[in-house]
């Protein structure tokens, strides 16, 4: 299994490098301008406080954009980084088994003494590891840049939000992985997991204004990722049980459907 993970990571090494460059650049370039905003924070905040409620809900129900927590949340962790890592995660979840099957390279892998369970596990670990590498790079860049621009946020909260952001994206990838492992078309895998990701964001955002949306939004992962609460230190940690359960269910579905099905 180690060999499979090693070669999977090796095959994706250039892709990983570009994702790291993208994430690191985005975080650095965004946070480095914080001192400019900090000097005008009070004035900017006043103009944002006049936003209508519906518009505020699209920003997660908060108009705090210029305090240290508000700035980091609105510029990085509320939507930008989850979206970026979500694309990576869905792409990995969809491709790790799906592309091998589509290209027929899976035949050669399974002609070697490797069980399907082992192949599936190795693929899942590879995906989780690649996402972790990029997430850790993003977290380290955030920590370093926060220090440079003197954004006053405890390191523990940056660790916490990095972990939960990782779990959120891992759950998107797990959904894509489970669908591709059942042998469904790759486009279905991307479509469903993107719906889970973006639909979750929209439902959760709008549920502040449209009250009846708050129930369906609870089904989707984004509702359990409360970036502002994490950065403020008021996050209820039991929310991560949702991510763990969703990832476990997707893992089981992947294993159950892949272990004995016909390869295309």
């Amino acid at each position: 299994m180690i060999a499979l993970i090693k070669w999977n990571i090796w095959q994706k090494r250039w892709g990983i490098m570009w994702w790291i460059i993208g994430a690191v650049s985005l975080i650095f370039m965004t946070l480095i301008f914080y001192p400019t905003f900090r000097n005008q924070a009070a004035e900017l905040q006043r103009s944002f406080d006049t936003l209508p409620d519906a518009a505020v809900q699209l920003f997660g129900g908060s108009t705090d954009f210029f305090s240290p927590v508000g700035f980091l949340n609105s510029q990085i962790y509320f939507i930008v980084l989850p979206l970026l890592l979500g694309i990576l995660s869905i792409n990995l979840g969809n491709g790790l088994i799906g592309k091998e099957e589509q290209d027929k390279t899976i035949d050669n892998l399974l002609s070697k003494p490797i069980s399907r369970t082992k192949l599936l596990t190795a693929k899942a670990f590879s995906g989780a590891l690649i996402l972790l590498i990029v997430s850790v790079s993003a977290a380290l860049t955030t920590i370093a840049t926060v220090k440079i621009v003197k954004l006053d946020i405890p390191l523990s909260r940056i660790f916490a939000i990095s972990l939960i952001c990782y779990l959120l994206n891992l759950s998107f990838g797990a959904v894509a992985f489970a669908i591709s492992a059942t042998g469904r078309a790759r486009v279905a895998s991307v479509g469903v997991s993107m719906t889970v990701a973006l639909g979750g964001y929209l439902l959760t955002s709008l549920s502040g204004t449209v009250k009846w949306l708050s129930t369906p939004s609870k089904i989707l992962p984004f509702d359990y990722y409360r970036s502002e609460e994490i950065l403020q230190g008021t996050y209820r940690w039991r929310n991560i049980i949702y991510f763990i359960c969703l990832i476990a269910i997707c893992g089981f579905v992947s294993w159950f459907s892949f272990r004995k099905r016909d390869l295309s």
């Binding site: 060999a3 290209d103 399974l110 070697k112």
Partner: peptide
């Protein structure tokens, strides 16, 4: 599969790998 060698006429391999890397991969497995 420990006892089998398998070859398909439509052998699908990884186009970005060199033959050496591919054989090393298969040997690891």
């Amino acid at each position: 599969k420990r006892k089998i060698g398998y070859l398909s006429g439509e052998s699908a391999m990884y186009p970005k790998m060199t033959a050496r890397q591919y054989l090393n991969y298969m040997r690891d497995l």
